[in-house]
């Protein structure tokens, strides 16, 4: 451990263990994708629900959505995870690490996406809703068939950006012992003390997942910008 890295001994030792590291990190990466996907789906559902509240007619629901957005955006997601995992656990609601992480990231992400969806809905001209209502659509139908399809183009880039942020944030699930990429990395470091080598490898894993996503974001942003011009 000490001094070994300077002589290169640690790197040689790390090199020997690369296949083992890769297999452990790979299974962690699979779990990272699962937590990200789960958190993403929950975020989207909560985001759409609360955006509907936020733009709706009921004052109570508007207020509730506002409080939800402000509170969950102003508190670190790590604190939220700990409330859900340790806090709820202490009052008898015990979630396993993975579901706890999915719920935590989902509720947190929902607050961000509420604002994204709201911006998207508000960007669609009011006349569109009025026209839909005047031909006899219900409010829900107008939202589903007229407003949301038009808002989609506007909200796609920020949603994709959110997905990248979420992917990286799932590393915090390691703090509630969810066996994802970062957690497996800590285990390997505890086992071998090769912290530099293992965390660099972990960085490569995250890059391999996030860089393709950010290429998609750039493409979506270009497309959205083109749509605005025409």
């Amino acid at each position: 451990m000490n001094g070994g890295a300077i002589t290169g001994g640690d790197w040689a030792r790390a090199y020997e263990h690369v296949p083992y590291f890769l297999s452990v990190l790979w299974s962690g990466a699979v779990m990272t994708v699962i937590v990200t996907a789960g958190g993403f789906v929950v975020s989207i559902m909560l985001g759409i629900l609360f955006a509907a509240f936020r733009t709706g007619r009921s004052r109570v629901l508007r207020g509730a959505a506002h409080v939800y957005v402000e509170v969950f955006r102003s508190v670190p997601v790590l604190t939220q995870l700990f409330v859900i995992y340790f806090g709820l656990g202490a009052i008898g609601i015990r979630l396993s690490p993975i579901p706890a992480a999915i719920v935590g990231f989902g509720i947190n992400g929902g607050a961000y996406l509420t604002e994204v969806f709201r911006a998207g809905i508000e960007a669609v001209d009011r006349g569109q809703t009025e026209a839909a209502l005047s031909i006899g659509m219900t409010k829900l139908m107008a939202l589903r068939y007229i407003v949301l399809p038009q808002a989609t183009r506007i909200v796609l880039p920020p949603i994709a950006n959110f997905a990248i942020g979420l992917l990286k944030d799932t590393s915090l699930a390691s703090a509630v012992a969810a066996p994802e990429l970062s957690f497996n990395a800590h285990m390997l470091v505890d086992e071998t003390y090769l912290s530099t080598q293992i965390y660099l490898l972990v960085a490569v894993f995250y890059l391999a997942m996030s860089l393709p996503l950010s290429t998609i974001v750039r493409w979506l942003e270009r497309r959205a910008a083109r749509g605005q011009r025409t």
Partner: peptide, 19 residues
């Protein structure tokens, strides 16, 4: 492209391993 946590660990634990 990488989590803050990974960067933090590289600086804290990684640098510690080279003293």
């Amino acid at each position: 492209g990488t989590p803050t946590l990974t960067q933090l660990f590289l600086i804290y634990f990684g640098l510690a391993s080279v003293d």
